[in-house]
């Protein structure tokens, strides 16, 4: 009899907990992959495809599924470090296949050479080029992520990547150049 009661009680308890877990899994269901989302938030969103994936989100998904974390060239070592922190792995050096120069640049169309072929417009991942067939194109510099993707398709090589000029607005202090001066 006591054995039966014990089985009954344990059975009821497991049923109750099972129901609770089942309810929780429905109630607190997580949409999508939160890890991929977090990695995507770290990536610089240049959508350049240098990692071999068509955009930052696909690479974030791939990293969440075990892809190497050192393929984001525009993000550089900072991004690698952040992803490593997030995923709890050791930061590794930048993939050698990728160029290490990640000075921020924007594309620039030499407008007098533009033939209006629209090839760069099709290549731009963020629609930062305006222009239409047989009309001169130009870059919306503020929207350009400097991904380089428009340079190759240009048949007349009139697109070049120019470093963002330094102004007082984006100027960074350089400690080495600051004369440390305090009065007594």
């Amino acid at each position: 009899m006591t054995v039966l009661i014990a089985i009954l009680v344990v059975g009821l308890i497991s049923l109750a907990f099972g129901a609770l877990l089942g309810f929780a899994s429905v109630k607190f269901k997580v949409e999508g992959d939160p890890l991929a989302e977090q990695i995507d938030a770290i990536l610089p969103q240049t959508q350049c495809g240098q990692c071999g994936y068509p955009g930052c989100k696909p690479y974030a998904d791939a990293v969440a599924n075990g892809e190497a974390i050192n393929k984001c060239a525009p993000g550089g070592d900072d991004t690698i470090k952040k992803i490593a922190d997030l995923m709890g792995v050791e930061p590794i050096a930048m993939d050698e296949a990728h160029e290490t120069d990640n000075t921020p640049k924007v594309a620039f169309i030499i407008e007098e050479d533009c033939i209006g072929c629209t090839k760069c417009i099709q290549a731009c991942p963020v629609d930062a080029i305006i222009g239409t067939t047989k009309q001169m194109h130009t870059i919306i510099a503020d929207e350009c992520t400097g991904c380089d993707l428009c340079v190759a398709p240009c048949p007349v090589d009139c697109i070049e990547m120019r470093p963002i000029p330094q102004t007082t607005r984006n100027w960074q202090w350089d400690l080495a150049n600051i004369p440390v001066t305090q009065i007594d």
Binding site: P44, Q45, C56, P125, V126
Partner: peptide
């Protein structure tokens, strides 16, 4: 912060384009 804002904008534009 500026870069983050820019990245967010780029992401939105990329998604809109897709």
């Amino acid at each position: 912060k500026l870069l983050d804002i820019k990245a967010e904008k780029a992401k939105q534009r990329f998604e809109a384009r897709k």
